Simulated scan of single mutants.
Amino acid sequence: MFYAINQKEYLANFLKDAGIQLSNNSTEQSVKPFVCNMKI
C-alpha cells in the first residue's frame, strides 16, 4: 500500500498519457540478444 502511495505522481502520469507503456518488456527484449552474447 505504501509503495502505491509513494508512486502516486508516476502512476498519475501514466493515466494521463496513453502513450506511456506500463511495461518495459519491449526494451528488455531488444537488449537481450546483446547481453546473452557477452563473454564474462
Score class of each variant (00 low, 15 high):
E9I: 11
S30K: 12
Y10E: 12
N37Y: 04
E9P: 03
E9C: 05
I5T: 10
Q7V: 07
Y10K: 14
L22Y: 00
A18D: 04
K39H: 05
A4M: 11
N6Y: 02
V31D: 07
Q21K: 13
F14C: 07
G19F: 00
G19I: 03
D17M: 00
L11T: 09
Q29D: 11
M38P: 00
F2T: 09
V35H: 00
Y3I: 08
M38I: 03
K8R: 15
L15H: 05
T27H: 12
L22E: 07
Q29C: 13
M38Y: 00
I5E: 08
S23C: 12
Y3V: 15
N24T: 07
M1F: 05
N37F: 01
D17Q: 08
F34D: 05
V31E: 08
K8L: 10
N24M: 09
A18K: 12
K8C: 11
Q7P: 02
A18S: 10
Q21E: 15
Q29H: 11
E9T: 05
I5P: 01
Q29V: 10
K32W: 02
K8H: 14
I40P: 11
S30Q: 04
S30D: 08
F2L: 12
D17F: 00
P33Y: 00
K16D: 09
Q21V: 11
Q29G: 00
M1G: 10
L15G: 03
N25Y: 13
K39N: 03
A12T: 15
V31S: 07
I20P: 01
L15A: 10
I5K: 09
T27E: 11
S23I: 15
E28N: 02
I20F: 04
T27F: 04
S26T: 11
I5A: 05
N37H: 01
Q7C: 13
F2H: 12
I5D: 07
F14H: 13
A18N: 12
N13C: 09
K8N: 08
E9H: 11
N25W: 10
I40R: 04
G19Y: 07
L11H: 04
Q29N: 15
P33G: 05
N24G: 03
E9M: 07
P33D: 01
Y3K: 14
K8E: 10
L15K: 04
M1S: 14
Q7S: 15
N13M: 13
K16W: 00
F2Q: 13
N6T: 07
A12K: 14
L11G: 08
M38C: 01
Y10N: 06
L15W: 08
K16I: 06
K8I: 04
Y10Q: 08
A18E: 09
N24P: 00
S30V: 03
V35F: 10
N25V: 15
N24K: 12
Q7M: 14
Y10S: 15
K8D: 08
E28R: 04
Q21N: 09
K32Q: 13
F34Q: 06
F14E: 10
L15S: 13
I20R: 03
K16L: 15
E9F: 11
F2N: 11
A18W: 02
I40V: 13
Y10V: 11
K32L: 14
